[in-house]
Computed example of a mutant assay.
Amino acid sequence: MDIKKQLSMGLMSAVLGVTLLAGGTYAYFSDSVETNNTFAAGTLDLAVAPTEIINVDTMKPGDSFIRDFELQNNGTLDIGKVLLETDYTVNDANGDNTEDFGEHIQVEFLYNADKLDEVIYETTLAELKNMKPEAVNEHIFYPLLGEKGLPVGDTDDLVVKFNFVDNGKDQNQFQGDSINLTWTFNAQQTEGEQR
């Protein structure tokens, strides 16, 4: 064997030996553990009782009707805001309306059944229909529920007074008319938090 071959073989043997030594000395302790984790979303469940707030007939200008109902949080998450959307249709019995009947129905939101003279907010059905839900929350539900909103399991009374406004003028166009009112209550969660 020539010297080049001997040196090559020697070098390869040395590299193999170092590799075996390094591989043999690379030992470590190890351990592992498995965790089981769950992410479950909560629920928002706003209920209103009763679901029919008002059903009256044979009303005349000057009449008023007080109705109260409960907002209930039946979910697993606190409700931060309640938004109210108002919609209605007027059934014009004689086809002679020149005005919106909803402009003649005044709505007063009151604090509770014990303080019927304390008005939170006063408007007409027509104005309420044109209000954005955030504005309704600001004027009605925020003063009623405050910063705390509606916590899980809580209920809060909402008292509403409807007035058929007697404006002292001829309101004959509304004889026999009716209004079908739909209120849609939308609950929103509280702000997220670090837990």
Rank of each mutant, 00 (worst) to 15 (best):
Y111G: 02
M59S: 03
L77S: 03
E191M: 12
L125Y: 02
T124P: 04
G17A: 15
T190V: 15
F29W: 13
E52N: 13
T25W: 15
L46H: 03
T76N: 05
E134R: 00
L145A: 01
V107I: 02
F174S: 03
K148H: 05
D154F: 05
T89Q: 12
G168I: 12
Q72H: 04
K132R: 12
K169D: 15
I53M: 08
D114E: 12
L71I: 04
Y121M: 00
K148Q: 03
K129E: 03
A27S: 13
N74C: 13
N73D: 04
N73E: 02
T38D: 14
P61R: 08
T43C: 12
D100G: 06
T43I: 14
G149V: 03
N97C: 15
K129H: 09
Q106T: 06
D177R: 09
I3N: 11
M12K: 11
D2H: 14
D2Q: 11
H139S: 01
T155A: 12
P61I: 06
E99G: 06
Y142W: 10
K5D: 02
G102F: 01
S30I: 14
L84C: 02
G168R: 04
P133T: 08
L125N: 00
N94F: 14
N180E: 14
K161N: 03
T123N: 02
T98E: 09
S64H: 05
Q173D: 03
G75V: 02
M59D: 01
Q171H: 12
Q72W: 06
D170L: 10
P151N: 09
Q106A: 05
D31T: 10
F174W: 06
F162V: 07
I53G: 03
A22N: 11
D31K: 10
D68Y: 10
K132C: 05
A14N: 04
D154S: 07
M9V: 10
Q173P: 05
P50N: 07
A126R: 01
I79G: 00
W183Y: 11
I179L: 05
T38R: 10
Q175P: 04
N172G: 15
N112M: 07
K132S: 08
G62K: 02
K4M: 04
N73V: 03
Q173E: 03
N163P: 07
P61Y: 10
T123R: 00
I105K: 00
V18T: 04
F162H: 01
T184R: 13
V33Q: 07
E191D: 13
D156N: 11
V136S: 01
L128G: 01
P151M: 02
A40K: 07
K129Q: 06
N94Q: 13
F185E: 07
G176P: 13
D45K: 10
